[in-house]
Amino acid sequence: MSIQAETVKQVAVLARLQLDDQAVPPLVEQLSNILKLVEQLNELDTRDVVPMSHALDMPIPERPDEVVNTNCKDALLANAPDSVQGYFQVPKIIE
């Protein structure tokens, strides 16, 4: 299946990516080629196959719910692009 320019633009909005107008046509072509490649899977009958979501058959591990990390607020905020009074700062959301 080939993908349309409108779809590419819509997916970019979902992915929070900005596309210049000249970036759209090559991306349409490249994504269409990749989708053509992946659609080879349609030749396989997989009706009775159980999907494999994990590389190994293992149960979900459990552990006691104990506090292991102590307060590391300052270390985490050290990487923040912008912070104020111990909080991450972002542009105003509500007018």
């Binding site: 899977l41 396989l44 997989t46 196959v49 494999m52």
Partner: peptide
């Protein structure tokens, strides 16, 4: 059509 299908083929490959 895509993700679920791929997970099934992944099992065939394994």
């Amino acid at each position: 059509a895509y993700y679920r299908k791929a997970q099934k083929v992944r099992r065939l490959i394994a």
